[in-house]
C-alpha cells in the first residue's frame, strides 16, 4: 500500500477521468435518502452521504438477472453472456467494502459464480471514510476499518483526502487523473487523529461477548417466539443487507413460448416458501425463520469463514418496521428479554 494526499477539489477531475474508462457509480440523493447510482456529472456525487437504501451488492449480484436465454424446442442455450460493464464504485464506506469481502467468500470460493466474478473482476472500488450515524454498529464486528478489498481508499483530512492506494489499477488512475502530493508526517498524524475521532463517535454499545455460545445455549429461548410475533416476514432486512446472498432461480417463457430465460432473483430466509421442500416446510413459523437468520449470520458463517456475516451498516435497522435488528437481537440474547 502507498499513499497520496488528494485535495478535495480534485475529486471532480478524478471522477471525470474515471468516466473515460468506466461507468462511475456513487452515492447520489434520492429524496431525503441516498442510493448508489451511475453518475452523469461529478456534481451529483454526495460524498457526505450517511448510507444508501440498497448496498453495493446489486452491482455484482443484481436483484434480478438473466442467467441465460434458451430455446424451448431443443432446450438449447442461445445466450449466456454476462454483462461486464467496466465500473467504478466510488465512495464505499468501510462496512460496504468489508461486505464485499464477505460476499467473495460465498461467490468466489472453490466453484466461483461466473456472473458475480465477471463483475467483480471488472469493478474498481474507491472506499471513503465516514462518521458513524445513530444506526451504525460496525465497531461491534471490527468492520469499521478495512485494509483489503479496495483499489483506493479516501480518508477525509480537512480539505484533503489521505488516499491509501492498494492496487496497480488504483495507482494508475490516481497518476492519470489527479495531481495530489506526497504524504507528510503531518498528514499521517491528521489521518490518525481523524481515525481516533471516528472511533470515539460510536454510540452503539453492543455486547457481543460469547455470542456463538449464547446462540446455541438459547436455541429454545422464548425470545425467538417474541421476535417471531413482531416479524412481518417481509424480507426487507435481507434485501437491504449487504451480505445476504440467497437467491432463487426460475424459468420464464417469452410471450410466443418458443424461447425462455432463466432468471436469478434475490430471496430471503424470512419468506415462508424459502424453506418449503417436497415433504413440507422446515421453518414454517416466523420465530424459526428469525432465529435462523441470526444463526446463519452470527454462527453458521462464522464457523466456516471466521467472521460474522454482518458489517454493522445499520440498513436493516432503518428498513425493519418491526425494529428487529442485530443490536436488539444481541441484547435479547444477553439479557433474555426483548426490548420493547
Amino acid at each position: 500500500m502507498f499513499f497520496r494526499v488528494i485535495p478535495k477539489r480534485e475529486i471532480p477531475d478524478l471522477v471525470r477521468g474515471l468516466a473515460h474508462e468506466f461507468e462511475v457509480v456513487g452515492p447520489v440523493a434520492k429524496g431525503e435518502s441516498f442510493v448508489f447510482a451511475p453518475l452523469t456529472d461529478p456534481s451529483e456525487l454526495r460524498l457526505d452521504y450517511d448510507t444508501t437504501l440498497l448496498p453495493a451488492k446489486q452491482w455484482f449480484f443484481p436483484a434480478s438477472e438473466t442467467l441465460m436465454r434458451f430455446r424451448v424446442a431443443d432446450n438449447a442455450v442461445v445466450d449466456d453472456s454476462v454483462d461486464v460493464t467496466p465500473r467504478v464504485l466510488f465512495g464505499l464506506h468501510p462496512c460496504d467494502v468489508n461486505s464485499l469481502l464477505l460476499m467473495d467468500n460465498v461467490f468466489l470460493g472453490d466453484d466461483p459464480d461466473p456472473y458475480y466474478k465477471a463483475r467483480r473482476d471488472n469493478t474498481l472500488i474507491v472506499g471513503l471514510s465516514c462518521m458513524p450515524t445513530d444506526t451504525c454498529f460496525c465497531d461491534a464486528w471490527g468492520t469499521d476499518e478495512t485494509h483489503w478489498g479496495f483499489d483506493i481508499f479516501l480518508s477525509e483530512i480537512g480539505d484533503d483526502y489521505y488516499a491509501s492506494i492498494r492496487s496497480v489499477k488504483g495507482a494508475e488512475v490516481v497518476d492519470r487523473y489527479v495531481t495530489g502530493r506526497e504524504v507528510t508526517e503531518e498528514d499521517t498524524a491528521a489521518f490518525q487523529a481523524r481515525t481516533a475521532s471516528f472511533k470515539a463517535a460510536f454510540a452503539s454499545d453492543i455486547d457481543t461477548s460469547q455470542l456463538p455460545v449464547l446462540l446455541d445455549a438459547k436455541y429454545d429461548s422464548g425470545i425467538w417466539a417474541e421476535l417471531g410475533d413482531l416479524c412481518l416476514s417481509c424480507g426487507a432486512c435481507s434485501m437491504v443487507c449487504p451480505t445476504c446472498h440467497c437467491f432463487d432461480v426460475h424459468d420464464e417463457l417469452e410471450a410466443d413460448q418458443t424461447h425462455g430465460t432463466r432468471v436469478r432473483t434475490w430471496d430471503s430466509c424470512m419468506f415462508r416458501d424459502f424453506a418449503e421442500v417436497a415433504h413440507g416446510n422446515f421453518r414454517e413459523v416466523r420465530a424459526a425463520r428469525v432465529r435462523y437468520r441470526y444463526y446463519h449470520k452470527q454462527w453458521g458463517y462464522l464457523s466456516r469463514f471466521e467472521r460474522v456475516l454482518c458489517v454493522g451498516c445499520g440498513r436493516c435497522t432503518r428498513a425493519c418496521k418491526a425494529h428487529i435488528d442485530p443490536p436488539r437481537v444481541v441484547r435479547a440474547l444477553q439479557t433474555g428479554v426483548v426490548d420493547r
Binding site: 437504501l53 440498497l54 424480507g235 426487507a236 437491504v240 434475490w266 415462508r272 428498513a319 418496521k321
Partner: peptide, 27 residues
C-alpha cells in the same frame, strides 16, 4: 404460460416490502 405448460398456480405468498426495497423506494 403456466396454464399452457400445465404448471400449477404460483402466486407469491409474501408481502410487498421486499419489492420496494429492491426498487429503492423510500418507505
Amino acid at each position: 404460460s403456466r396454464v399452457l405448460l400445465g404448471l400449477k398456480n404460483r402466486v407469491p405468498d409474501l408481502t410487498m416490502c421486499a419489492s420496494c426495497k429492491i426498487n429503492e423506494t423510500v418507505c
